[in-house]
């Protein structure tokens, strides 16, 4: 266990090193900081002096060492746009993204497990077929399109006039398919409750929750079908195994066989895939936050790109890199803990 831990840790440090070199190379090659600092009339000799003073003429490795030393101490430089430390800007935007991801994860877990298990137990029932059909459509709709459709239906409203209005049933059907569209579709709302530091939460008030619903559903919509299909496939495979047949033959109640014996082994691969999907989730927060103008890290990153705010871009990449490395390591550790058959030391890194 200790050997595995150390090996994983070395791996994580190596990955972070590669990311930091890439991030530094970006910072080094994009834009000229001196040009950002001084006016046009400043002569070349003076610029050279500033360059010398800031250490911009030092060799690449010396500059990288300085960058890495500062980065480890949490100093990533100043954002050009916000004119404050880049890490503080990120820290201010982080809670919004975390809440969005948390809400989406909650939706995914609450729906994917029951639906996946049900459609594995009864693969031929019409409800399972419906779920499978809907889930492949769900995979085929990009997350920003789901978001736009949700905005159209729940924030702008749809008026259906497809059925004849002069008959009773036509009017009723028109009213049934029309939506009012009073859900908020951008921002976090006005009713945020401060928890601690710069963490304002959406989860405490009705208005905050209303603002959270559409973005969270959009973000969940892309992962939910994936997990339903994964849980279904794994569960169906587990149900074929000898130990489940044996448990069944022993006369244990089916509910217990499904939810205690089978579900445990179903969740193993789901955990690993879930860990990998966290990366995808971060990418999708960029899209979701753009559509809903959700003031999180993703929207901030996109704004930083459009403003060529290089310190902020680099800091975002480093922070996202840390998040990936930490979650992947934790997922590997959990996997090792819950699955005793995995030989921890022999597992390829």
């Amino acid at each position: 266990m200790i050997a595995f831990l150390i090996k994983r840790l070395m791996h994580a440090i190596l990955v972070m090193f590669v990311i930091s070199v890439l991030a530094f190379a970006i910072q080094d090659n994009l834009g000229d900081p001196v040009q950002q600092m001084v006016g046009q009339s400043v002569p070349e000799s003076e610029r050279e002096e500033i360059r010398e003073r800031l250490g911009l003429n030092d060799p690449f490795l010396v500059q990288y060492a300085r960058f890495a030393k500062n980065a480890v101490q949490g100093d990533f430089g100043y954002s050009y746009f916000y004119r404050e430390p880049a890490l503080e800007v990120i820290a201010r935007h982080l809670p919004a993204t975390l809440e969005l991801v948390f809400a989406a994860t909650l939706i995914i877990v609450l729906f994917s497990v029951p639906i996946g298990v049900y459609s594995a137990i009864k693969p031929r029932s019409p409800i399972s077929r419906l779920f499978m059909g809907v889930s492949i459509i769900g995979i085929s709709i990009p997350v920003f399109l789901t978001a736009i459709v949700l905005i159209q239906i729940f924030a702008i409203g749809v008026t259906v006039t497809l059925f004849p209005e002069n008959t009773g049933w036509g009017a009723w059907l028109n009213a049934f398919f029309s939506t009012e569209g009073n859900m908020p579709s951008f921002g976090r709302g006005y009713d945020l409750v401060n928890v601690v530091g710069n963490w304002d939460t959406n989860l405490a008030t009705w208005n905050g929750l209303q603002h959270l619903v559409l973005p969270a559903v959009s973000l969940a919509s892309i992962m939910l079908p994936l997990f339903i299909r994964l849980i279904r496939a794994e569960m169906m495979e587990v149900l074929q195994s000898e130990y489940v047949k044996y448990a069944r033959a022993k006369g244990i109640s089916m509910r217990r066989v499904y939810f205690v014996h089978a579900l445990k082994n179903t969740m193993l691969p789901v955990i690993t895939v879930g860990g990998v999907q966290i990366g995808t989730m971060v990418a999708y927060t960029i899209l979701t936050e753009t559509v809903f103008q959700w003031p999180g890290m993703g929207l901030m990153f996109l704004d930083a790109i459009n403003r060529a705010d290089i310190p902020l871009i680099v800091t975002y990449l480093m922070i996202v890199g840390v998040i990936f490395v930490v979650t992947n390591t934790i997922v590997d550790l959990i996997y090792g803990l819950v699955n005793p058959t995995v030989k921890l030391t022999g597992k390829p890194a």
């Binding site: 970006i26 994009l30 990998v276 999907q277 995808t280 971060v282 290089i310 871009i313 990936f324």
Partner: peptide
């Protein structure tokens, strides 16, 4: 582990910025 979409977004952003 970084997800292909994330890599694409980052590379696209950097190429555009350069």
């Amino acid at each position: 582990s970084f997800s292909t979409l994330m890599v694409a977004i980052v590379v696209g952003a950097l190429v555009k910025a350069t």
